[in-house]
Simulated assay, not measured.
Amino acid sequence: MRKWLLPLIPIFALALPSRGEETNAPAGERIALPPAYKNFRVIGLSQRSDDQSLRAILGNDVAVEAARAGKTNPWPNGAILAKLVWKQKQSAQFPAATIPDAFSSVAFMIKDDAKYAATAGWGWGEWVGLQQKPYDKAGFARECVACHSTVKDQDWVFTRPGELP
């Protein structure tokens, strides 16, 4: 190997897309925080009127490829969906615009039919605030499945990817 390449190896390693590797998983039913999620791409947006929040739904490469191909029912194993949540507010400069306010949380769904068979084929996790404090409520994954049961015919996913040109 050429000596000038050695310093670049760590940079290239950081640029590799995440395929859902899980490390340092907390005890119990929780997943680990996917380390490369900040490099995921947007696949959908949503606004919730019940808690006045804005959400950007991101996906890893597996999820993005599935969304673009229209193959999301079911989502493929290895897909990771990330939901970044902000409180919302009206823009002072442009009152017709709703903009993000304080960051609330990031939640994940990791598709693996075998590993997460007990929770509808998905691993579930949430981290709160800018500090990304794990949300460690007992029974969290089962609670997620119960809420998402209304969309079990959509592979337990509320998000409908937006069309891209």
Rank of each mutant, 00 (worst) to 15 (best):
D112N: 15
L130K: 12
E21W: 02
E22T: 07
A117H: 00
V85L: 03
V106A: 01
T98D: 03
K87W: 08
W4A: 07
S91M: 07
E65V: 11
K115I: 05
R142F: 12
L54D: 08
E126A: 08
Y116W: 07
I31S: 06
P134Y: 00
T159K: 14
C144D: 03
P100K: 07
W124P: 06
T119M: 13
N73Q: 12
G28Y: 11
R55C: 11
A13I: 07
A141W: 03
A15T: 08
G59K: 13
Q154Y: 06
G78S: 10
R2L: 14
W156E: 03
R160M: 10
A97L: 15
K111G: 03
K152E: 07
N60M: 01
G162A: 14
G44C: 08
P134W: 00
N60Y: 05
K83H: 06
A63Q: 05
V85A: 09
P74R: 13
G59M: 13
E22H: 01
C147S: 01
K115A: 13
V151P: 02
S105H: 00
A63H: 05
V106I: 12
A67N: 04
F108D: 00
A32V: 09
E21C: 08
Q47H: 15
A102L: 04
A79H: 09
T98L: 13
W75F: 10
N77F: 11
I31P: 03
Q47T: 15
F12R: 12
A138V: 00
Q90W: 05
K87N: 13
W86R: 12
L84S: 14
G162S: 10
M109I: 05
Q154W: 06
R68N: 15
F103D: 00
T72C: 04
I110W: 06
K89E: 08
A25E: 10
A102F: 03
